[in-house]
């Protein structure tokens, strides 16, 4: 209980500090920039198709294969570096977007008379899953690069299909 008490006191000081900081900069952090006018979705909506095309290109192996065919290791290194940067920026943006969505939800639901605890918990689970996916994506992009990540996924897919067809074949033999 002694350690719990000390931890609780320290946590309380930390959260109090956060609360004071937030109150101080409340006006700056207000989401009034676009959520109040309801324009966030519109802006993202315009952006979605372009972003999708660009990002599918960044994560695809097409360009990486083309650069590899030029046989210039320097160029290859530069392309991988740029793509990595782009991919990481995109993931960071998606994380920010998720945070903003949840913040907007909190602002809208805080006055709702019929707020459901279960609904909030489900939403929290969705949000945490999304953040975990973003984290996984960052790790994979850092370790393998966006194209390398897809190559690995494709290889795993092929391997999985091969194993599955092999299993089905064996099962078929056993049954017959």
């Amino acid at each position: 209980m002694a350690y719990f008490s000390i931890a609780a006191a320290l946590l309380l000081f930390g959260v109090l500090g956060l609360h004071i900081l937030r109150s101080k900069y409340e006006t700056d952090t207000r989401i009034g920039d676009c959520s109040a006018a309801g324009t966030c979705d519109v802006r993202f909506g315009d952006d979605i198709h372009v972003a999708q095309q660009v990002m599918s290109r960044v994560f695809s192996t097409e360009d990486a294969e083309f650069v590899a065919s030029l046989e210039s290791s320097e160029l290859e290194r530069l392309v991988v570096q740029e793509r990595k940067k782009l991919a990481l920026q995109w993931v960071a943006r998606k994380s920010r977007e998720a945070r903003r969505i949840v913040r907007e939800h909190a602002q809208a639901s805080r006055t709702a008379q019929d707020l459901q605890v279960l609904g909030e918990l489900q939403l929290l689970a969705h949000y945490l899953e999304l953040r975990a996916l973003c984290g996984l994506l960052v790790i994979l992009v850092m370790a393998l690069g966006p194209a390398g990540m897809h190559r690995l996924a494709a290889e795993a897919d092929t391997l999985f299909l091969r194993i599955r067809s092999g299993t089905v074949g064996t099962a078929g033999v056993t049954v017959s």
């Binding site: 977007e97 998720a98 969505i101 949840v102 969705h126 999304l130 996916l133 994506l137 994979l140 966006p146």
Partner: peptide
Amino acid sequence: LGRTKAFVRDAL
């Protein structure tokens, strides 16, 4: 949130 998640899953 679902839309954002779909993009991230696609990328993965």
